[in-house]
Each structure stands twice: as C-alpha cells, then as structure tokens.
Simulated assay, not measured.
Amino acid sequence: MSTATANAPSSSSSSSSSTKSSLPPGMVIGPDGKPCKICTAFRHWKPPVDKPKQTQNNAQGGTQQQKTAAMMAAFASGTGFTASSQQQQSSTSTAVPEPEQYTRPAYCPPDVEELGRSTWTFLHTTAAYYPDKPTMAHRVNMLSLLRALPVLYPCSVCATHLGETMKTHPPDVSSRAALSRWLCEQHNEVNERLGKEKFDCSIDKLDERWKDGPTDGSCD
C-alpha cells in the first residue's frame, strides 16, 4: 500500500520549508508539516551512523589504550612485543568491520514499507477468498472496507493518493475475479511509481500467488 515518495508536498509557509530542507533525503512530510514516520521507509527515517573517528583510529593501528592492552598481554604470555607484533595485532584484534546498512529492529513500530506489504497481503488474500457470486451483503461490506482505507490508513500520503485513485477507478466488487484484478491494478500503479516490478493480473496468476500456491507443490 506504500505510495509515499521523498519529501511529499506540504504547507508553503517558510517554517515548513525550513524544516523540510533540514530533513534527510527520503523523509516524508505529513499534512501537519512535520516529519511523518509512518509515511517514511526506515532507511530514510534513521540512516546508518558514520564512524569516521573509529575508522581513522583503525588506520593508525588502533587507539593508545588498545596498543597498551596488547603490549601487556604480550608481556604476560612471555611472547614479547615488537613492532611487527604490534602491526599484526592492530590488523586483526583492532579491526572494526565497515558500517552496515541500518536495519529496523523487530521491536520497532512498522515503517511505510512494512505497513504497505502487510496491507497488500491482507487485501489480496481477502480478495482471493471473496465469493465468485457475492451477495449484496458481501458487496456492501467489501466496499465499506475499501472506502475506509483513504480515511483510516495511517500513512496520510498513501491514503490521500488511494482516495484520489478510487474516485477515477472505483472498486469492482462484482466477483472474486473482478476484485482481485482491481486490487492488482492498484498495486501495479503504486509499483510503477516506485520503480518496482509489476504483477501479472491474470486470475490464474493471482490465485497462484494468494490462494492456491504454485503447481509444483512447493508451498503445500
């Protein structure tokens, strides 16, 4: 369901412009003019922390405390401590791996990408089990569910875009195949704007993905 893009439009006031310019690339501004965490991917929300000082210390053979500790350990073991052993020690024990891409810990609130994946999974799966010949009650409830998203979805940027799309391309709840195809088309529209691969919206492929699994039985 994620539709957010970097630095979404906000208020034209000078204060919001100042706030926007001070944000890291990819951070999205909410309708209140403030950074919107649930509208932003975690990698933009909290990017990797650079450690230039630590890297510099490693290049110089470690800190003085590390050198002293290595020397004392060498004397205690009776092996002595020479320039070559110092160099070897600093190239092994004091080496620190390069910073890795900061990933969101499992205990953190969802970001826009996790929320989007979970929402699409729920909607596609619900459509896969929707009746082929829905009753009026089925249709009314499905429409209520879909029409609630632009109002209740936590990411306001995504919700607004979905609401605008639904005005020009209303949900088709006439059958299971029609609903599944409509959702697939909405998902593809989002994926296209995000530069992601599109799905095959044929009902056979949708059923394979969201209901029956592949024919090779690998998901059974």
Rank of each mutant, 00 (worst) to 15 (best):
P9E: 00
C36G: 05
I38Q: 07
K133Q: 06
Q65I: 07
R117A: 12
H138Y: 05
A69M: 09
D212S: 10
K205D: 07
R181K: 10
S14L: 14
S118W: 07
K53E: 15
V49Q: 09
Q186N: 11
S16D: 13
A128T: 06
G213A: 10
A69G: 11
S12G: 13
L146R: 01
A95E: 13
D220Q: 10
G33D: 02
G195E: 01
T5L: 09
W182Y: 05
S12N: 13
S118G: 15
S218E: 05
Y130T: 00
A83C: 03
E113Q: 05
S93V: 15
A6H: 07
S11Y: 14
T168G: 06
V173D: 00
F81N: 02
T160Q: 13
D207T: 15
Y153H: 01
A4G: 05
T92E: 05
M27A: 07
T19W: 09
N7A: 03
D111M: 04
T79W: 07
W45G: 00
S144M: 04
M142V: 00
D207R: 03
T125W: 12
G163D: 11
A159R: 05
K37W: 10
K37E: 12
N191P: 02
Q56H: 04
W120I: 03
G33A: 14
S84L: 08
R117I: 11
S84E: 08
D50R: 11
G80Y: 09
Q66E: 09
L179M: 07
D132F: 08
S144T: 06
A95N: 14
W120A: 00
W45Y: 08
G217A: 10
